[in-house]
Design a protein around this nucleic acid. Structure first.
Lengths: 335, 335
DNA sequence: AGAAATAGAGTAAACGTTTACTTTTTAGTG
DNA sequence: CACTAAAAAGTAAACGTTTACTCTATTTCT
């Protein structure tokens, strides 16, 4: 009735459970004949080992937990894709957690992951609060950060150099002759993705002798809708501009939408450059010029680092992955 | 050194492990004084129960597995969002599996999920092969299907009525005066999402006295790129048409992209209606008229059904969720 | 007061593995 | 053939819980 256990196999093959276990793990200590008997019994009973029992004894669950602020964003799901892919390859399962950027929820997830005895954790796209750090530390499992970083604690991370990427995006607009350049940023309290991108933008302006004008920057939350709001604000309140740097593709796409609705041509009237390179960005019209972040590859890398830490608990370093400016159709030289 | 166990708590509180367990589960059998002692010890040691050990004994892991053909598609991640949300609420974790529509991979996942003793499985957006069904059956855990359905086996599902939705989409174009209506479909061997949508399309034509012309239907795979290919084929080879029904938003968006590139105006020259209503569809320009599938809600519903099955193993029925035609800017009356 | 019921607690088996240790069998050596 | 080394296999503890069962002391009832 119940699923067969190793004992049932042992009985059927008329050997001890230890022998069955050894055969199944290819350890030494049995004759070829015995091996055949065991394998036959396994086959006949349709025996499958119970990973829970195994996990209990060797204190390994072959499971990792991954936290996202928003699983359903294109950004997160590309990351997840990469993470899941290598994890699976290496024999790990992944439990997804959607924190909704809510501290309470996050702490609850952390507790669940702890109780479930995950072997490691990937924490993505969000500032690592001290509270989280402490919980993570108590769990004593490896952690890797993706698309975020902790200045206070030494935790390996995988991310692009936001400051430099933003610098490059802005400079690209400048090289195209633009001097009145607006920006849509994340809230300026975001120490991870917000501030560095604004700084890169400012620096590029400064290095090219263009004065920074605070009125030309609007704030969003990386989402589509916030991009619409932001450009509306800019159009209404900011001094005129011929180019726009949006700190996320979603915001760029939102902004393009309202521009187009109002008969503002892209890139003829306003050039736009985004940030992320979501798969959608290539496909919309006009295709979005943007900073490519290799999200799937970053996910893969994160998984690899984490598993390395789990398996040899050797030290693993952080890596700044290369971004890339991909030229498509939303930027053109200033007339 | 090691994380404290229930034994450590028992020792610290000077009671037996049974008592600790009872206190932790609010069962009867101890004085208030004892309870305080135990709680104090738990607090001081920072004890957290081990879900693996618990799972071993009560044969419940509070974990479900979810299979997607492509985790990183917007479609899947909206579903996942809903599934994860209610699962978490009800105390379940979710393990994601990306089958990549690969039979081998799927079978491997099924085995892993079995070994990990998940309590239930959600299977999404793919035809349930007999092989999968058998594996699932052997696992003896509840299953719910999302966005797919098995005609052969009685398995509860959650999906929209594709045939009817396609009918409605097509009829909407007809009501707008169009008579030369092309379609981009999934491959016609797809018994789940392919055939019913084509049939709905055909039926709507027939009911309105329009002859079906096979040359006006092209095939894709639901992805963006395939939408581009399909419309290119249509533009090159099909008789002229004034409207297009795409069986997925991604394909519709891909098609819009090439139309726009070629100076074909949407909706002035060609009206387009999509299918899915991804969050991006509202945001692109022009915003896509489409059939709304409430993906997140469908995910939630699936989770609820599955958990109901897990918890009382009562019978649970399937539900056809309501789709909705959302009118945006890509369809206009024929001039 | 004595019996019966009850509250408060402990003991130990069970869940399905892995593995250190022990025992038995076989093969090898001089 | 006696003895040793190696191979083959078994025994049982351990992992961290839950829970059925048992035991003792106290309360309740007649």
């Amino acid at each position: 009735m119940n699923p067969p256990t190793i004992k049932d196999v042992a009985k059927a093959a008329d050997v001890s459970v230890a022998t069955v276990s050894r055969v199944l793990h290819n350890l030494a200590g049995y004759s070829d004949q015995t091996k055949q008997k065991v394998l036959k019994a396994v086959e006949e009973l349709g025996y499958q080992p119970n990973a829970i029992a195994r996990g209990l004894i060797n204190k390994r669950t072959q499971t990792i937990g991954v936290l996202f602020p928003d699983v359903s964003s294109s950004f997160s799901s590309d990351l997840l894709h990469g993470i899941e892919d290598v994890a699976n390859d290496r024999g790990f399962s992944v439990i997804v957690c959607n924190t909704a950027e809510d501290g309470k929820r996050t702490m609850k997830y952390l507790q669940v992951l702890r109780e479930k005895q995950v072997d490691g954790i990937v924490f993505t796209s969000e500032f690592l609060k001290e509270e989280y750090y402490l919980a993570l530390k108590e769990m004593r499992v490896p952690v890797v950060l993706v698309n975020t970083q902790s200045h206070k604690h030494m935790i390996p991370y995988v991310k692009v150099d936001d400051r430099q990427a933003a610098y490059q995006a802005t400079e690209y607009l400048i090289q195209n002759g633009h001097r009145e350049i607006a920006m849509i940023s994340d809230t300026p309290v975001d120490r991870i993705a917000g501030i560095p991108r604004i700084e890169g933008y400012k620096q590029a302006l400064a290095d090219n002798g263009i004065e920074y004008n605070e009125a030309r920057v609007a704030y969003g939350d990386f989402g589509l809708e916030s991009g619409r709001k932001a450009i509306e604000k800019l159009l209404a309140e900011a001094p005129p501009f011929t180019a726009l740097f949006a700190a996320s593709d979603e915001m760029a796409i939102g902004a393009m939408g309202v521009a187009l609705e109002r008969g503002i041509r892209i890139p003829d009237d306003i050039s736009i450059i985004g940030y992320d390179d979501l798969s959608i960005s290539r496909m919309i019209y006009p295709p979005l010029t943007t900073i490519h972040q290799p999200l799937t590859a970053m996910g893969r890398l994160a998984s690899e680092k984490l598993i390395a830490l789990i398996e040899d608990s050797s030290e693993v370093s952080s890596t700044i992955v290369n971004h890339q400016l991909v030229e498509r159709k939303t930027v053109r030289p200033r007339p």
